[in-house]
Amino acid sequence: MVEGEEELIRTSVSEVLGEQEAVRESLIPILLRVQEKLSYLPPLAMELIAGALQIPAVDVFGLATFYNQFRLHPPGKYQLQVCMGTACYMVGGKIALDCFERRLGINEGETTPDREFSLERVACVGCCTLAPVVVVNEEVEGRVTPTRVDGILIAFGKKIQPSTGVGEKKGDDGS
């Protein structure tokens, strides 16, 4: 959590709770409003909401993990959206996603601890001729091969360890 964030979460949640009736049925609108303000749902916010509605925190968490609409990780400075539409998937969208995951050390849907990069999968972004496509903060990057993945990351200031080849063979490509 960055400095001053706890304060921001507390004020945002209490503002939203002031607007909505504190009953279980309002849980979705409350979560949506809180997410609008904070751009994600931090654990503290979910706990505060659960406390106010007098429901178990796990129920709020369960709902937030059920709907794709809710994000549990803050958006990074650079939001990477990897297209998994049919065309992109067929020409290696999954490989691009795997490369990002490995390079950034996070899974799909997560954010790096320094909040520089967040990684998501999206459905078709509408430019299948450029497949596989990655959208970085609304900018479209086409033909994203694993090398291009490194290129994108380097362009945004990510330091990439040169590959040594040692201990990477096994399971990587099955060769």
Binding site: P43, M46, E47, I55, P56, A57, V58, D59, V60, F61, G62, T65, F66, Y67
Partner: peptide, 24 residues
């Protein structure tokens, strides 16, 4: 949730990732 009134366990995730889990 209803008998013990603890609320530690709940359903999380969706579809094939659905599981009985805890907060976070």
């Amino acid at each position: 949730q209803e008998v013990a009134k603890v609320g530690a366990l709940g359903f999380t995730g969706r579809g094939i990732d659905r599981r009985v889990g805890t907060f976070q």
